[in-house]
């Protein structure tokens, strides 16, 4: 199909005596685009991708069809990236740090970050450590000194293994030289329930999820270099002397490696334009998302910075050989 379209463009261009307007034109998109979401319908990754795509449909002038391919913390879906059609009609949602960490620790993972061409990046959801409001831990120091005195007794719930929340726990264990008992639940909901029910002593989770809990929880520290305007009273780990603990769950959409640069440009422009509209900002705000929109062109630079940090951590903790 594409070659016919290209041929037509070429013919059209020659007819116009190589007018400069038509030089880089490409007939795309001419049919609906599929976007794969690797987490189940209704979770934050899915909700945000649906909002993003709803607005991108307008700027692209084509329907976008969301397909949820969930399982094994995203590995099930991302294993499709290498085999996917490279015609620009198949895109996938991505999560950071998952696409860095999983190829290193999950031996069945059949992808790495270089298989993704980022199109748009919209959210940074910082990781926070939180406890129930009536917990004896008033500050992060309380938690750390308890963990020092009694190794492996401080239990922290996680939404899953090797997600950002888990890596933040590993970062703190490494930085403070403590042992925390981390509990990988299947998703945030049961992890939060276990904290509220008093079965676990706290959680490492998204800031957005903790804000939603209101005064039922106390956030002890946030894994960002600077305090977050949405939770200005929560100190950073850096303030407490652990600048290494920096983690967030970042979300965006990518094309598989091999898609033509002209198509990537069309997609990046269209998604960027959609993400600039006030309606998009409004919808994301309603969903409680901490927006941080980055155009696809600028994302690889961010990845190049973040990935080695994760790799170094996993290597140092002997979770990866090299």
């Amino acid at each position: 199909m594409i070659w016919i379209a290209r041929l037509m463009v070429v013919a059209f261009g020659m007819g116009l005596a190589l007018s400069p307007v038509c030089q880089a034109q490409i007939q795309y998109p001419t049919k609906p685009i599929q976007v794969q979401v690797v987490f189940p319908a209704g979770g934050p990754s899915d909700t945000e991708a649906r909002i993003m795509c709803k607005h991108a449909e307008i700027t692209l002038g084509q329907r976008i069809i969301i397909q949820n391919v969930a399982g094994a913390g995203g590995v099930a879906g991302w294993n499709n990236v290498r085999g996917a059609e490279k015609d620009g009609y198949w895109l996938t949602g991505y999560n950071i740090p998952h696409i860095f960490s999983q190829p290193l620790v999950v031996k069945e993972a059949n992808f790495n970050k270089d298989d993704f061409i980022p199109i748009i990046h919209w959210a940074n959801d910082p990781t926070v450590f939180a406890v129930r409001a009536d917990s004896p831990y008033k500050t992060i120091e309380d938690l750390i000194s308890d963990a020092k005195a009694n190794p492996d007794t401080v239990t922290l719930g996680l939404a899953g293994r090797f997600l950002g929340h888990h890596l933040a726990v590993l970062q703190l264990e490494d930085a403070a030289n403590i042992k925390i008992k981390d509990l990988p639940f299947q998703g945030s909901a049961p992890s939060i329930a276990a904290m509220l029910g008093g079965q676990s002593k706290g959680v490492s989770d998204n800031l957005s999820d903790m804000l939603r809990q209101g005064d039922k929880v106390r956030m002890l520290a946030i894994a960002q270099p600077k305090r977050n305007p949405m939770a200005p009273n929560v100190p950073t780990f850096a303030e407490k002397g652990y600048p290494q603990v920096v983690m967030s769950s970042d979300r965006g959409i990518a094309a598989p490696k091999g898609v033509a640069p002209e198509i990537v440009k069309v997609l990046r422009d269209a998604f960027w334009k959609a993400a600039q509209t006030p309606e998009f900002t409004e919808d994301m705000k309603k969903a409680g998302v901490d927006l941080n929109v980055v155009k696809g062109d600028d994302v690889p630079k961010l990845w190049a910075e973040a990935e080695p940090r994760i790799r170094a951590l996993l290597v140092r903790l002997k979770l990866v050989e090299k």
Partner: peptide, 10 residues
């Protein structure tokens, strides 16, 4: 859990 997503969006 998905209904929760619907709540939050509003």
């Amino acid at each position: 859990a998905i209904l929760l997503g619907g709540l939050i969006i509003h």
